[in-house]
Design a protein around this nucleic acid. Structure first.
Length: 426
RNA sequence: GGAGAGGUGGCAGAGUGGUCGAAUGCGGCGGUCUUGAAAACCGUUGACUCGAAAGGGUCCGGGGGUUCGAAUCCCUCCCUCUCCGCCA
């Protein structure tokens, strides 16, 4: 959520910034609602003040045995008037609040202008894209030849956009998770957490998936609103909801492995082949809560932490800055990491690292006590995939294939595979 | 799933209709004392919001109600704990 103060005092500036996202906000509507709200609030508070004052007088009068019928009569009038005012004010406030919940974050000034992912800006490249002297297969064909991936049987179990993994491929997938967790814990100073895979409405609202993107998540058939988590970001960030952190707690750095569930509504016909775009996938997520002054440095570090995984796996990649049109709802700036896929002769998103500034923290009421100013201030939140496990598996299979559709296991993973160097048909 | 107890400030814990944003303790901050620290003692210390300030308003799990007036009474939802049942 954007700072309501900013909206009230610098509406034109906010509108201008949001127009970079091709979003036109209804300034006049907001201004007039705000004007009404201000007026009503003043009136309401004035009546409340009268009520409080009279209430004390009545209490005093009663305790000294005076007659209070006249006072009570007057209070009755105030009470009626007040109730009417409060009802109107509440309605108005919730209308404004609903409107504000739909506003995305303001893109940082360094975010490039653009409308689609074509306009994202490459910031660096790492590794050499492998050359092959045979015709490369994609992970689907390799997986089938190895007997390690099976999409048809997954479809039988549940439907499309799922996969089953078998034998050494399944083990490689699991090894990746352990490897990523270990690196972030022992080399990057993150603390591992385990969290629920179901979250309630409030949690998804605080991180920004709701109210706008309900169609992207799986909703459970419970009486209260519950959802399968689309990312660990939701439960992990919400650990700090309604908290006032001590300065020495910061920065908070969590690493968390969870499955992620996405309905992929609106992506029909996109990446339908293979395991690039699934309803269920595993991800190792990094989440940080930091002092505002250090969030930009933290974004760079967090992105580096994700890159380290690809470097250790010897997978070529590039980092891009998302343009205004491709930027996520809650994010002020995002770096995507894209891994090289030989079958596509192109790069494919494998991580997304974002700084949300105080956008999520404001919804979360995630704050800290600034000892210098003695004030309670909002934290900044960040997160990034490090990495999407399924896509990492795809990248390894495709980049490390040989002409017999065998897959060489990166050295860093071999300890997790009982020393196995190559996966071949079992 | 059944029975009971309970949800109050950073934490613990009083408060059952009025002068209660809320006793007390702990913790935090400032000070006295001390070479320094601890202890002791004194002072101070909730969040949000409107306002230049003075000051006003809101918040006692969420929502609704009763009342001139609600932390306190009623309804409802959520959550926690204890016991029983079932169970990986």
């Amino acid at each position: 959520m954007l700072d309501p103060k900013l909206l009230r005092t610098k509406l034109d500036e906010v509108a201008l910034q949001l127009s970079r996202r091709e979003l036109n906000i209804d300034k006049d509507w907001f201004a007039s609602q705000e004007k009404q709200r201000r007026h009503l609030q003043a009136a309401t508070e004035n009546l409340q003040s009268q009520r409080n004052r009279n209430s004390k007088l009545i209490a005093q009068a009663k305790s000294s045995g005076q007659d209070t019928t006249v006072m009570l009569e007057e209070m009755g009038k105030i009470a009626n008037e007040l109730k009417a005012c409060e009802t109107k004010l509440d309605d108005l406030k919730s209308e404004i609040h609903t409107w504000m919940l739909e506003l995305p974050n303001i893109p940082h000034h360094s975010v490039p202008e653009g409308t689609t992912d074509k306009d994202n800006i490459e910031v660096r490249k790492w590794g050499d894209c492998p050359g092959f002297d045979f015709e490369v297969l994609d992970h689907v064909d390799i997986g089938e030849r190895l007997g390690g991936l099976d999409f048809k049987r997954a479809a039988k179990v549940v439907g499309s956009r799922f996969v089953t993994m078998h034998g050494q491929v399944a083990r490689l997938h699991r090894a990746l998770i352990q490897f990523m967790l270990d690196v972030h814990i022992s080399e990057h100073g993150y603390k591992e957490v385990y969290v629920p895979y179901i979250a309630n409405e409030q949690s998804l609202t605080c991180t920004g998936q709701l109210p706008k993107f309900e169609e992207d998540v799986f909703r459970l058939h419970t009486s209260d609103l519950r959802y399968l988590i689309p990312t660990a970001e939701v439960p992990v960030t919400n650990l700090w909801r309604d908290y006032i952190a001590k300065e020495e707690d910061l920065p908070v750095k969590y690493v968390c492995h969870t499955p992620c569930f996405r309905s992929e509504a609106g992506s029909y016909g996109k990446d339908t082949r293979g395991m690039i775009r699934q309803h269920q996938f595993e991800k190792v997520e990094l989440v940080q809560l930091v002092k505002p002054e250090s969030s930009w440095r933290a974004l760079d570090e967090l992105t580096q932490h994700a890159e380290v995984i690809l470097q250790k796996l010897q997978l070529p990649y590039r980092v891009v800055t998302l343009c205004t049109g491709d930027l996520g709802f809650a994010s002020a700036k995002t770096y995507d990491i894209e891994v090289w896929l030989p079958s596509r002769k192109g790069y494919c998103e494998i991580s997304s690292c974002s700084n949300f500034l105080d956008f999520q923290a404001r919804r979360l009421k995630a704050r800290w006590k600034n000892t210098a100013t003695r004030k309670t201030e909002l934290l900044h939140t960040l997160n990034g995939s490090a990495l999407a496990v399924g896509r990492t598996l795809v990248a390894i299979m495709e980049n490390n294939q040989d002409q017999y559709a065998r897959v060489r296991i990166p050295e860093a993973l071999q300890p997790y595979m009982n020393g196995l160097e190559v996966i071949s048909r079992e």
